[in-house]
Design a protein around this nucleic acid. Structure first.
Lengths: 219, 219
DNA sequence: CGGCAGCCGTACCGTACGTTACGGTTCGGC
DNA sequence: GCCGAACCGTAACGTACGGTACGGCTGCCG
């Protein structure tokens, strides 16, 4: 992780026209992957290349802006931990699992992750950091309070929220993301996602659900 | 793609010189990622570009051959399921987990997966399929017999070996691979890997270990 | 010894694409 | 109505790189 210092919501600094251009770039990115050319973006967005360079600096700047633009769109409402009981906790966890599976299996996420992975380690830009920050780390930031609340309410047992989160993450994502990124067909129907979310949640509860007579050190 | 019709273990069809060239290409791939040029490979391997094209057809052919060459090197000895008890099963699972974590955190694996992910969906070659086949699917092929043996021995309970495998996979890999692919620094020391392998194994046993009085339908 | 096949090194070609430059049009402010 | 800024469309430039051609060297075989 490097910077990501331009924290969040720089989406406000964008005019409507710029957003439209980035939307066009995003669509092209999903279709063509890292193959997209500045000419193609300009044509798709009905703008001149000169404008692209003025607004975004260079190709990497355009790519980064596009990724950040998409990231700014997926902010979801945080779950509140009021009146927590086992049923609502289970529902929350299933909701998180289901949402996450939907995200990582979407065309947009796959395309963005592919581009970011391809650019990682080149040192030219920080696409990987941006994607990570708005994906896996944002998820952790939203889920951990729920886990903590569950522990407070005596429903969950764990020593480290980060570790517990990563267990949940593993149970939900399993091999799905890497397979999709590598081009494996793997159609996730709505029903399959729901089933996986329920299974992952039950497994997580089996590992970290509070049970009288079990010591937390067993985890 | 031109050739690559010779399915697997075409490693035997390679001369020593060709292997040396592919090793050079592999090292370059780790250093430069998808940025490597045919000229750079030729220079590193001290061969002519003409030879590269004669042997591998084109750039994609060279890349594919390089990935397959690396894959052919990581064949590991399968574990035998003789005289299985809980201790040896646990040891086997920990061994699998530890090996897998070492693989996915290695520079070579990261570089290869990055290239394969970058090429996936372009339709030009099948790097993604090759990596998947020699990574995640090869792992499943080797681990499933162990799981089945564990079930036969009354040590494990599960209805579907594939699902059980994916649970184990998730518990082991968690967010490690995607974070590494996206460029997150995440140094896994020998000790950390050992600890993670033990934790994942214990979690898996907690979910699927045979316990008198628990119905398999609970899983 | 002559021929020839395989390969190295290098020069060369064509193209794709990032980047820049420029003429023409629209539009808000004076 | 006039000016300048912003922007569109397109042409032009430079370069990097995939792919090819060729001359020279080495070693094997008859």
């Amino acid at each position: 992780m490097l910077l990501a210092n331009a924290d969040i919501d720089n989406s406000q600094a964008l005019t409507e026209r710029q957003k439209a251009v980035l939307d066009a770039a995003l669509r092209l990115l999903v279709e063509e992957g890292d193959h997209l050319t500045m000419t193609a973006v300009a044509r798709r967005a009905s703008c001149s290349k000169e404008t692209l360079y003025k607004w975004f600096g260079d190709r990497d700047g355009l790519l980064t802006a596009t990724v950040q633009w998409q990231a700014s769109k997926v902010r979801v409402a945080p779950v509140d931990g009021k009146g927590l009981d086992l049923a609502s906790l289970t529902a929350s966890l299933e909701r998180f699992a289901s949402d996450w599976l939907k995200v990582i299996s979407s065309d947009t996420s796959i395309a963005l992750n592919r581009v970011a992975v391809g650019h990682a380690g080149s040192g030219k830009d920080d696409l990987g950091a941006v994607v990570l920050e708005n994906g896996r780390f944002a998820l952790a930031k939203r889920l951990k309070p729920v886990l903590e609340a569950g522990r407070q309410a005596g429903l969950l047992e764990f020593s480290d929220a980060e570790t517990a989160f990563r267990t949940f993450f593993g149970l939900v994502a399993r091999d799905v993301q890497i397979r999709l990124l590598l081009g494996d067909r793997l159609e996730l129907t709505e029903a399959a996602i729901g089933g996986d979310a329920a299974r992952a949640t039950q497994q997580f509860l089996a590992l970290h659900g509070a049970k009288p007579g079990r010591k937390a050190s067993d985890l």
